[in-house]
Design a protein around this nucleic acid. Structure first.
Length: 470
RNA sequence: GGUCCCAUCGUCUAGUGGCCUAGGACAUCGGCCUCUCACGUCGAAAACACGGGUUCGAAUCCCGUUGGGACCA
């Protein structure tokens, strides 16, 4: 049994979006599972639309997801000579022929055929041509078989039979010397010894043509596995409109790479009722046979949920490290790591993304609390003045403000005032955080520390006195 | 237009002829927990696109219809 070799072959014309990322992931998983080799190849034959930034973006996104490659990246733009040589070989062997037809002529013929209700298929008018003037530009066409059938034994889609009469003689090398997609991909996969071509379903219809080229080149045929497309939440084709399909945007939005991987793998693949998988489990359990055949719509809510699960479980130091850039983004100064760790460990239980965590942590870092409107209206009322004063008083007598102390003080105050806990807690919450919703008050007080708590209570007292003065 | 693919709750899916009164997860709604918001927990509502066959029996196999999608340009 020869070693498995898979590849991911993106075009660097934009960001790596989630459809591509999932294809890469399946290739990676399959290679890992079989102890094979995963190859990265950049398909940049379209020089006009390919950019260096896009290449870098793809590499970054792959690294962020943890999809490391064993070989490459190879660049098609560095292999033009190879494509030309192989095309000339086919020419010599009579498996391809020169075509001098001008694009305008071909376009005209195509339109005519469509008008007459015929298939717009190349008429092979250059096949029998005897004279080959080298001064005139020509393309090289593959001489395809128009008899019989070509069968694709797809690992995901099953057995698919194509009538060869449907295929026409496709151009493999354009007159400017550039290879076409279907040709370069076969030359590359063949010469790189790819054993399993795992790619998007949009290439299924190209596969019979490619198989014929494999046969003409006498390359061993790889196994094919066409994974279904990913759709937008509305079941329509995925596009930029649908939020953020680019991998690096998920990073910016505060998703963890393991959550994104877990989410992507479950789009089309499943393992019984299991929803959460570690990378090791995925490698162990992944099979191409278990990949579904129907297209899947993305479901942002599920990614949120998965992300919140991973945020809860992540190693705390690691989470803090990942969280830091989001604080910097907001311009918060982080006084010390222990303080930050406490904050993260308190907030991690209640957020879906790191961006949300940064938003919720605002009151810990702000010099001055800003009161939100609802909290002001409901809780910063004359009746709260006494609560703030009593709490400040009680606090100032304590040596140390930890969670238990804070809890005790709130409870004592409630008893003293003959009020339910909530009547005491809510005004204090607004005074300390500016909001009506926050982590538990005792926790907030401990993290904030005695000094800040007292200062914020005093600010609230001043605020109330001014309000009443008017 | 031709060829090819697809079709189970709103979404991701389990299901490979009897275990299905169709299971799980997200989202939704409600109870519990509770100082608020979450988490958690318990529960509810929610699907086999339609029509024909095959079979003692069909979500499951076959054919057709409809609806989506891809490719060819």
């Amino acid at each position: 049994m020869s070693q498995v070799r898979t590849r991911f072959a993106p075009s660097p014309t934009g960001d790596l979006h989630i459809g591509g990322a999932r294809t890469a992931l399946f290739n990676w998983l399959f290679a890992k599972k079989t102890k094979g080799v995963f190859i990265l190849r950049i398909e940049d034959t379209d020089v006009e639309r390919s950019t260096q930034e896009a290449v870098q973006g793809i590499l970054d996104a792959m690294k962020w997801l943890g999809l490391d490659w064993d070989e490459g990246p190879y660049f098609q733009s560095e292999r033009f000579r190879l494509y030309q040589e192989v095309a000339e070989r086919l020419l010599r062997e009579g498996k391809a022929y020169r075509c001098y037809c001008k694009p305008e002529e071909l376009e005209e013929k195509r339109r005519e055929a469509l008008r007459a209700g015929r298939k717009p298929k190349y008429d092979r008018s250059c096949l029998e041509r005897r004279v080959h003037p080298l001064s005139q530009p020509f393309a090289i066409r593959f001489l395809s078989s128009d008899q019989g059938v070509t069968v694709v034994e797809d690992l995901i889609q099953g057995r698919i039979v194509f009538d060869n009469s449907e295929l026409d003689d496709l151009i493999i090398l354009r007159s400017d010397g550039f290879p076409t997609y279907n040709f370069s991909v076969v030359v590359d996969d063949g010469t790189m010894g790819i054993t399993h071509v795992i790619r998007g379903n949009d290439h299924l219809n190209n596969t019979p043509r490619q198989i014929q080229i494999y046969q003409a080149l006498e390359f061993p045929l790889p196994r094919f596995a066409h994974v279904p497309m990913i759709l937008g939440p509305d079941k329509k084709k995925l596009s930029k409109r649908h939020g953020a399909p680019s991998v690096m945007e998920y990073k910016k939005m505060g998703y963890l790479p393991e959550a994104v991987v877990n989410y992507l793998v479950r789009l089309g693949w499943s393992y019984g009722d299991q929803e959460e998988f570690t990378l090791e489990e995925l490698i162990e359990k992944f099979t191409l046979e278990a990949v579904g055949r129907s297209p899947a719509a993305i479901n942002p809510g599920k990614l949120d949920w998965l992300n919140s699960q991973y945020i809860k479980k992540k190693d705390l130091d690691e989470l803090v490290r990942l969280f830091l850039p989001f604080l910097e983004e907001k311009g918060y100064l982080v006084p010390d790591l222990e303080f930050l760790k406490k904050i993260v460990s308190s907030l991690r239980e209640r957020v879906k993304t790191l961006v949300e965590m940064a938003n919720l942590s605002e009151f810990y870092f702000a010099e001055e609390v800003s009161y939100e409107e609802e909290g002001t209206k409901r809780y910063l009322t004359p009746g709260s003045l006494l609560i703030f004063e009593e709490m400040r008083e009680a606090l100032s007598k304590e040596k140390l403000l930890d969670r238990d102390t804070a809890h005790r003080l709130i409870q004592q105050l409630a008893e003293k005032q003959g009020q339910p806990l909530v009547k005491i807690a809510q005004p204090i919450r607004v005074a300390l955080t500016g909001r009506t919703a926050s982590p538990p008050l005792d926790e907030v007080m401990e993290i904030l520390g005695q000094g800040k708590v007292i200062r914020r209570l005093e600010k609230a007292i001043k605020y109330l006195e001014q309000k009443e003065g008017k």
